[in-house]
């Protein structure tokens, strides 16, 4: 694929209670956003194992988005606090292995925030486009 028509490939982990429902809301409201991401539904953002993220990046995901409920709204009380800590640590690790930490993004999106889901997709895709393809794709840093 030439660089010109390269489109980032993004994987999004969304908790079923808030963010997956928020993505559904974007759908029912017919809010259009770029088609770069594929959503994997999990019970809670707290389920997102750092290994999933690292594996996705190794598999050449250009970006990973984790979406969960706002603080205080997690269906499992505190799952999202743990998510937030894990993502912070993981961003540090990404820097160490030579990947831009911006490729990993965490957003709190409620079931009502269809607009926010779509806006997040737009801005994340734009950000990743500026970063370019995942460097691991060309046998870059491991």
């Amino acid at each position: 694929m030439t660089k010109k028509n390269w489109e980032p490939k993004i994987v999004c982990f969304a908790c079923r209670w808030c963010s997956y429902a928020g993505a559904d809301m974007a759908g029912t409201s017919r809010i259009q956003y770029p088609p770069n991401a594929r959503v994997i539904r999990v019970n809670c953002s707290g389920r997102v194992d750092p290994q999933f993220i690292l594996r996705a990046l190794k598999l050449k995901a250009d970006g990973v988005l984790i979406a969960g409920c706002h603080f205080g709204d997690c269906h499992y009380v505190s799952g999202n606090y743990q998510t937030s800590r894990r993502v912070e640590l993981l961003k540090e690790y990404l820097k160490e292995i030579g990947l831009e930490p911006e490729r990993l993004r965490l957003e709190w999106i409620s079931a009502a925030e269809g607009t926010k889901f779509a806006e997040t997709m737009k801005s994340f895709v734009n950000e990743i486009k500026l970063l370019g393809p995942n460097p691991l794709a060309d046998g870059g840093p491991e």
Binding site: I40, V42, N43, C44, G46, R47, V48, D49, P50, Q51, F52, R55, H75, Y76, S78, G79, Q82, T83, R86
Partner: peptide
Amino acid sequence: CGTCAAACPNEAIAPQHFTMDQII
């Protein structure tokens, strides 16, 4: 919720229907 599964360093615990293998 699966918070434990994400925390476990040994992949020793996981909620059913959202297992490591399934998500991978």
